[in-house]
Structure formats: structure tokens, C-alpha cells
Design a protein around this nucleic acid. Structure first.
Lengths: 348, 348
DNA sequence: CTGAAAGCGCTTACAG
DNA sequence: CTGAAAGCGCTTACAG
């Protein structure tokens, strides 16, 4: 590779000092109009782009933001649905793009139990300015270590550290409560719940709690057998529906953990001559294209907005001198009523 | 944030010079055993991690590898199926992890037509050591600019630049040919094709050509109406099946572009009293869990291996002094026979 | 408005 | 085996 153009080349070619080039290029000090024009002519002609390592060494900034998950990639990217994950990334990317930041992406591989967790290593070697953490579980030791060092962190999604760490999320507790309450309002008392994934993910736990508290508030007794742990596959919805159906007292309504699970429930119902919402009233989360297509009542979980607001918040943190109390941003959700819950037709 | 531990701190604390610390830490020159022990004790105690910017400034390496797509994130991540994309990332990540490299991820947002493409900017400011390019289309100007500068590039997937640029892919032409040939061997002559996505993606074009050439070789006349441009949604498979069914001369076999489309075809068939493989023989690509679940004959497209081999190849490039001719690695594919094609039962 | 100089935290010849 | 010194390409006081 041929030698790269440096600030010295520009300075020599433009007949000025390197400080003047730096001032002009960065707009960080006034430079005479003609000088500036000459400098920029040379910059353009020579295709100059400042070396980020050199710049980073003195400014102590990399302009890299890390999106991290303390889980293997497969868990992470499968857990988030297809389009849903793209939305998160798109939201983050748009904001970072605009502010000239790069996106680093990292996860903890199973079995790769290094002495130093990857993220801590990245922080110590200053490979990034801040981190967005997604899908945290109960082990918040990494997050605590980062925040102790005053390293800028924003959590995307449910977390254990409310009020201590900046975060952006939909209120999973609240939307599960709302979904459940909606079914209660429609007269149901035998209401089952499918978790969108394993309960070690806080998003799942939060939703379960919201569901349970809604039942409690309505004076409806919880039933262990009304809870099914699903996953990102449609089949888990089908299996859940079957599990519920085989109970002595089958539920009359189901809170599915995600739209694809709701589709599985619909599938099981159709295959077994059950009517939705007649025999089973159904609500879900995400409000993806699937919900629209199959007429599933679903509450929005706007990952695009989470990504966007998360990135914005992190960037704001980077520009602040003094500490401020942690901010917990909640992205509003909307319950989209369709045919599956029985509210629309009134014929439930 | 408190001041960070530097090599100076280690040197002072260990009572040696900074060169010795550097030599010991990097194993880049012999250091007396006791000296080394003392140094590492201090390193551990003080949690030292070398500053990557400082190191990068002199070594001219960032240890960052960029995964880039010249398309908006939504296109990219949706195009690759859910798990399929996770597999690609997982493959890349495992290799980079092991070699202590970080993954930068970048894409070209629509409407964000900057004067300098993002990737070129990243290259010029030396924010990464090399780049993996995924989902390229016919506009290879960016890739050409990178290779002209001798910047290390590996293309993941189909590309226009065979023999000029390093690449790793399944042979999309060949697997489409093989899929089609399989149906021909089963006696079909009216064979339709669903593209996995828009033809601007080279992977789609390659598969279309493989399909067409298989027909040509068998002396079967191509029919424009036997080609349907699908997308990443199941519904596109359903629509394709309907489109084909309404033709005057409906096909007796379909090469679906991806498993989820094949599921759509099955769905349409079931809803319309058509038997698979009786009325429609069906083959597909990807061999995901869906194929297994629904008994779809499908040819593997191992994205995990593509990611892994791509990352390995790129890392090898980084360590080479002199140029070598571009390498085009082909990941082998396997046709997994299941019930949908009619080969298994012989009752097609 | 402009320039000379120090310094960011490393690596790497070069001496010894 | 170890250390003093130069230098990577920038930014940023400091003088003028």
C-alpha cells in the first residue's frame, strides 16, 4: 500500500503549518478565507482523511460505539426476530451515521471464557467510546464494572439496574400488564401466558411479571400450568397451544410472547377446529407484519425507536463533562386491536 | 474517568524501561524470567491494557475488521434469513475473536449519499484493517477503489469480480443448476423458479442463471412466466405458487429460492388441494430448520462456513507482504433429499 | 490569523 | 537482556 497522505503533506503543499491545516479542517480556530480555500483545495486533490488512530490518541476518542450482548450471537440474533433486529440496527446506525460514529459489534461466545470479558478488554484498551448493551440477564457484573469506571453505557431493553444505568426500552412489564388487562376487560379469567424466550432474559421476566400482576390485581388466581416458555419459532406457539388445550381446565385466552408464537397458536387452533377468538382469545407483542396479516391483536415494541433513542442518549453522554443521574427512557407502545382478541367483533 | 494505566506506569512500578515492558508484554524480544515475572505482576495488579490508538498509530493496524454491505441495513438483514444471518455473524465472530480482532459493521443508508462513500472514508482514515463485503450488486466501483489501493477485501457471496478479488461463497450458479437438474432427472420439464430476492442481488442472478442453464442443457425451453421474483417472506412463496397455478400450462415442479418461500408454496398447495410432490415437486435452498420440519428437499448454503472462511482468508491477507492472485473459495453444498421433491417415495 | 513545540502512548531500531 | 531515543500523525495550548 502506498504511503498515506498526512497532515504534513497538506501543510507543505498548501504552504502553511500543520496547526493551520488542523484548524481549517476541523473548524476549530479561525483561518483566513483564502488560506482556508487553498488548504481545502489541497485536501480534496490529495484525498486527505485524518488518521483516526493519531487523532484518537490525543482526543481520547475513537468514534466507535459498541453494540454488545453478553450472549452468543446465535441467541441474540435469533431472539430478536428477523426484521425486528434489523430495525434495532437501523435505528442505531442512522444516528451514529449522522454523528460520524462507527458501530462495533461484539458478543460473548460460549466456551470462550477468557479471564477478562471481551467488553472489559475493549473498554480498557479504549477501542470504543461507549457501549450499548442489549439483552442483559441477571448477571450485571460487567455493566457494574463499566459504570464504576464511569464508562458510558446505555442498556437497550429490560435490565436489573433501573435508576443506576441509562437505559431505553419499551416498558415490558407495563405492556404485558396491558395485554393481560385487555383480556380481563373482555371477561376472561382463564388466561395463559407464553414467554417469548427463556426467563433468564429480563424482557421475558418483566413480561411474565406484568401478566401476573394484572391477574393479581383482578383477583384472578395464578396457575403454574398457564405459563409456557416459548422461543423464537412458530412451533413453540403451536406447542404452547397444545399444552394449554390438554389441561383439565384449558384457558379461554392466551397472551402470546411474540407474533410468530401467536401464528403458531392460530395454526394449532385451525388444525383442531378451535375458533379464535371464539374458543381462544389471543393477544401478542411486537405488531410485526405477521400480526397484520393474520389479524392478531398485538402491542407495539418499537425496536427502531429503541435503537435510535439509545444511540442518541449514548452520544449525549459522551459530550457531558459531569455526571448526571441515570435516565430511563421508555418508548411508548400502542395496542393494535385486530380480530384475534374478540374486542373488535364483540362476539367473544 | 480516572486516568488510565499506561506503559509508563508499569515501567515505573516494575523498575524497568518502557521498552522492556513492551518486549515482555508482547513477547517481541527476550526478557529475563524474573524481570518478566515482575512486569506481569504489575500488569495484572494495575489492570493494564495497552491503548489501541497508540499502538495502532505505530503498527498501522487497528485490529478492526469491517463487515460492510452496500445496501440499507433493512435490506441486508432481512434478505439473509433470521438464523441465516446469525450464522454468518457467528462464523465471522468466532474467527475474529480467536485472533483478537474486532468487528465493525457498516452499511450504506439510502438517501445518505455523501460525497465519499462510507466505506472509502473508513479506509482512508484507517479505521479498519480490512473489509468483508456482503451482498454486493453490479456496482463494484467501491470494491475496485479499495483493491486499487491494495486494501484487503474479501467478498462474502456472489460477485462480479471473480479472479480479481478474494471471495468466499457457495456456488450459487452450481447449486441452482443442481436443484433444477434434480427435478429434470425426476422427469419434470415444466419447472418454475422463484428468485430469493430482487435480481440486482448477484446471488439471485446467479441462481437464475444456474436454473436456466440446466434447462438449456436438457433441451427444455425457458418460459418467462415460469420465473417469479420472491422475497424473504413466506407470502411470496404463496403468491408465486398462485401465479404459476393460474398459467395456462402450470409447472409440475418448482425451484423455490429459499426455504421460507417453499413453505409458502406448501401452504398454497394445502389450501388448494394440491399434492406435493404429486402435483408440484418442490426443491429449495438453505436447508434451514424449516426444510427439515416440512419435509422440503433443500440444498445447503452454509453461511456459518462462509463467514468463517471469509474471516480466515481476510486475516491471512493482512499478514502477507506481497500480493498473491485472488482466491475464490467455494463452500461445498449438499442436496438433502426429503419428501417434497418426489425422489424419496418414487411415487411422483 | 498563523506557527513552533509539546505531547498523546505506544513500538522499534540502535547501542550497549 | 535492557534502556534511551526517535517517531507514528494528529491536537492544542502558547506566543506572536
Amino acid at each position: 500500500m502506498s504511503r498515506n497522505i498526512t497532515i504534513k503533506d497538506i501543510a507543505r503543499e498548501a504552504g502553511v503549518s500543520i496547526s493551520t491545516v488542523s484548524f481549517a479542517f476541523n473548524g476549530t480556530a479561525p483561518v483566513a478565507a483564502e488560506t482556508k480555500a487553498r488548504i481545502f483545495e489541497v485536501i480534496k486533490r490529495l484525498n486527505y482523511q485524518p488518521n483516526s488512530a493519531a487523532r484518537g490518541l490525543v482526543t481520547r476518542k475513537t468514534n466507535n460505539i459498541c453494540l454488545f450482548t453478553p450472549h452468543p450471537a446465535s441467541d441474540f440474533f435469533s431472539f430478536k426476530g428477523n426484521s425486528v433486529f434489523a430495525d434495532l440496527l437501523q435505528g442505531i446506525g442512522e444516528v451514529l451515521d449522522q454523528k460520524d460514529h462507527n458501530l462495533l459489534i461484539s458478543w460473548e461466545n460460549l466456551g470462550h471464557k477468557a479471564k477478562t470479558p471481551k467488553l472489559i478488554k475493549l473498554m480498557r484498551e479504549r477501542a470504543m467510546d461507549g457501549v450499548l448493551i442489549s439483552l442483559p440477564d441477571h448477571d450485571s457484573s460487567i455493566i457494574e464494572e463499566l459504570t464504576e469506571q464511569n464508562f458510558p453505557v446505555v442498556i437497550l431493553g429490560s435490565n436489573d439496574l433501573k435508576n443506576q444505568v441509562n437505559s431505553v426500552d419499551v416498558d415490558n412489564y407495563e405492556i404485558a400488564y396491558r395485554n393481560t388487562q385487555h383480556l380481563i376487560d373482555l371477561g376472561h379469567t382463564r388466561i395463559a401466558f407464553i414467554s417469548p424466550g427463556p426467563l433468564e432474559f429480563l424482557v421475558c421476566e418483566d413480561r411474565l411479571e406484568g401478566y401476573q400482576d394484572a391477574l393479581d390485581s383482578a383477583g384472578i388466581k395464578r396457575k403454574e400450568e398457564y405459563i409456557y416458555i416459548g422461543d423464537e419459532n412458530e412451533s413453540s406457539g403451536r406447542k404452547a397451544a397444545e399444552h394449554f388445550r390438554l389441561l383439565k381446565e384449558p384457558p379461554t385466552a392466551i397472551v402470546a410472547g411474540r407474533d410468530v408464537q401467536a401464528v403458531g397458536v392460530l395454526d394449532y387452533a385451525a388444525a383442531n377446529g378451535l375458533s379464535v377468538p371464539g374458543d381462544i382469545a389471543l393477544v401478542s407483542f411486537e405488531n410485526t407484519a405477521l400480526a397484520d396479516k393474520y389479524g392478531i391483536t398485538s402491542i407495539t415494541t418499537n425496536l427502531y425507536e429503541i435503537g435510535k433513542e439509545g444511540a442518541k442518549l449514548l452520544l449525549k453522554l459522551l459530550n457531558r463533562k459531569k455526571d448526571r443521574p441515570a435516565q430511563n427512557i421508555s418508548i411508548p407502545s400502542e395496542l393494535i386491536i385486530r380480530s384475534s382478541c374478540g374486542a373488535q367483533t364483540g362476539s367473544a
